[in-house]
Nucleic acid binder design. Structure first.
Lengths: 233, 233
DNA sequence: TTACTACATTTGGTCAACCAATTAATTGGT
DNA sequence: ACCAATTAATTGGTTGACCAAATGTAGTAA
């Protein structure tokens, strides 16, 4: 009965403004490379407070679409118009990323990051990964949920890959992964224990600096999750 | 002479506040799951305006570290404390992405996205990729710079991969790629023409739905850029 | 005519006050 | 003693005003 009334008025003011800015760009009133109107003007045109405009700009700046220079103005990044259009629409729907895509992408990033980590790891990286692994196993032994510790182990590997961009992307998708895992109850006790062995195998390959084997081990480790996501779909 | 005085005072106030919040968490004054002090209190403690505090919170919320409920308070995500600590420190140094990592990550994402695109492309995808390719070749024939059109071609492929997350990540790193390319003058006329042939090859494999070949072709296409980035390093 | 300086305007950044909603407390009744 | 309702305080959200730097402009001197 009550469900009929939900789902109204969910769009936040900043998303509305992002949509409007997109309109400005796609309609050609705003070409890449040139300054966009001052914040005061925008707030006046859109009929909202300047804070909301600033928040929207900040969000777009975060994604690299806009660039704001203090006391000088905000400019549109030098991308093609069509690319921008796609970008902005995707920023809006980035939130609800489907689970299958998420897992698929994770597999891609992680196998490569394991491979690179094996090739480039320093002794310090080994220690960091090892301590993350032990924190994970400790939680598992106590019968507690160890989703975060699991991800932390993987993040440490990404860190050891010495690829800052790869590491950043992992950080970006990690929160979504955690949420999905908890939501869909991916993890069971049996899986935790099995994962523990697989973790050790990965670590061993990284210690041995065997990139290919590390990648394969990671692929194998994530196979379960992939199958789960496919069954959910 | 003057260079000695530059590069000071680069840390923005919001980063400073993020650092302080991290301090609060690591020192145990703030545990995962519980509310953090109201914004007014924080601004007073940190000795800055409330706006800066709100911006910092917003940034952390962006990464899923904090969650703010209107008129109720802001809470720390239910992550493990070690995970949080690692996440926040990484958020701070997220900005700087070196060119080598950028290219390396791009290769990873693009080879996979080409492979998936070949397997999943629809007739509409083919048309979109084809028209992007033609726009690129038109610019090249006129002797103009076609960096954006180049990237647009690649983005269309990512779109055809039907993996929303992969597509989003490509969109995220694309602006950085464009900037680096223009800055480092990666592209010459000869490369544009050679790239054109390689583009056609990739497209052909996607049309044929040959995933492996598409991946290989993309890898080959990006080889030049990889070598360039390594020589720069 | 040209170049340079001083000024006025515009810019994004910052701040303090205000608003509505939520939560805690107090009070009155049972 | 306990529960309900009303009130008081506290919360994040929003607004408008102010600040310092950057830019554009006009005026003056060479």
């Amino acid at each position: 009965m009550l469900e009929n009334f939900s789902e109204i008025r969910v769009e936040s003011p900043v998303d509305k403004i992002i949509r409007q800015i997109r309109e400005l760009i796609t309609s050609g009133q705003l070409s890449p490379g040139d300054k966009l109107p001052p914040e005061r003007k925008l707030s006046e045109v859109f009929g909202v407070g300047r804070t909301n405009v600033r928040d929207a700009i900040k969000k777009l700046e975060f994604y690299g679409i806009l660039k704001t220079m203090p006391q000088s103005g905000t400019v549109v990044a030098g991308l093609g118009i069509t690319a921008l259009e796609g970008l902005i629409t995707d920023v809006l729907k980035l939130e609800k990323s489907d689970f299958a895509s998420l897992v698929e992408t994770r597999v891609i990033l992680e196998t490569q990051s394991a491979k690179l980590a094996a090739e480039r790891r320093t002794p310090e990286d080994i220690i960091a990964i090892q301590s993350a692994l032990e924190a994970y196993e400790k939680k598992v032994r106590n019968g507690e949920s160890a989703v975060e510790e699991d991800l932390l182990f993987h993040l440490k590997i990404a860190e050891a890959s010495k690829n800052s961009v790869l590491n950043s992307l992992m950080l970006i998708i990690t929160p979504d992964i955690v949420n999905s895992f908890v939501e869909l109850k991916v993890c069971t006790d049996a899986r935790f224990i099995k994962a523990s062995e697989e973790h050790r195998a990965i670590l061993q390959h990284i210690v041995n600096q065997d990139g290919k084997a590390a990648g394969r081990a990671m692929l194998n480790h994530l196979k379960d999750v992939v199958e789960f996501s496919q069954s959910k779909q």
